[in-house]
């Protein structure tokens, strides 16, 4: 029965204000690719979902946003938590507006990238937890000259940017930390590339 209590707890205690603050960090992160933001007041989903990822789900997902859970994030407890707190329908990857999963489990090829007329109809991917990163340099909107960060891959994100304005948008979450990589960011390998 412990699982049940997990499912029913961990939401916001003051949703309007807490989600406003969390969204502001999510917006700043999307506006400044590669910059890391630390969330203060967070939701708490069953392990192994990070608190930052749980918070993003509460801020952005509801009954109107099909969600796909992948890899270690696809457990009965997490499914129950998501359904109770957001009401988001759980769907296959191809139909998802939001995707939550660990990097190694994600199959990005099947996700919606939008259409030429509606490039916004594309999936937002929340990559939760640790990954073996490589150093990369980022350029593009939101970055003054160049920004240096670590990403789980290079080619995947180069291909994603090459299809602009179509493409996927990413959040990377770990613990209380949050960073983003929209499709508009151009990625090169190495710190001084």
């Amino acid at each position: 029965m412990e699982q049940t209590s997990d499912m029913l707890t961990g939401g916001f205690s003051d949703a309007p204000r807490q989600s406003a603050r969390a969204f502001r960090a999510a917006l700043e992160a999307m506006a400044r690719p590669g910059s890391t933001y630390v969330l203060q007041e967070m939701a708490d989903a069953p392990a192994p979902v990070s608190r930052a990822a749980a918070t993003l789900l509460l801020v952005l997902c509801d009954a109107e946003t099909p969600l796909h859970l992948s890899g270690v994030c696809d457990t009965p407890a997490i499914r129950g938590w998501v359904t109770f707190h957001t009401g988001a329908p759980l769907v296959a990857a191809a139909e998802a507006m939001f995707v939550l999963g660990d990097w190694s489990s994600l199959d990005l090829r099947v996700l919606a990238r939008g259409t030429a007329e509606y490039p916004d109809r594309s999936a937002t991917v929340i990559v939760d937890g640790d990954f073996e990163g490589v150093d990369v340099s980022l350029r593009g909107p939101g970055i003054k000259d160049v920004s240096v960060t670590r990403l789980p891959d290079v080619v995947v994100f180069q291909e994603n940017a090459a299809h602009f304005p179509l493409g996927l948008d990413f959040y990377f979450t770990r613990g209380a930390k949050l960073s983003a990589l929209p499709r508009s960011t151009r990625v090169t390998a190495g710190e001084n590339a």
Binding site: L60, E64, Y118, T124, P141, D169, S184
Partner: peptide, 23 residues
């Protein structure tokens, strides 16, 4: 809150596709 979530999702897509008008 549901309205704000809808607007917030549009804002994030707008941010990811600069200059594109998100319905």
């Amino acid at each position: 809150e549901q309205t704000k979530r809808m607007i917030r999702r549009a804002l994030l897509k707008g941010m990811a596709i600069p200059g594109y008008q998100v319905p």
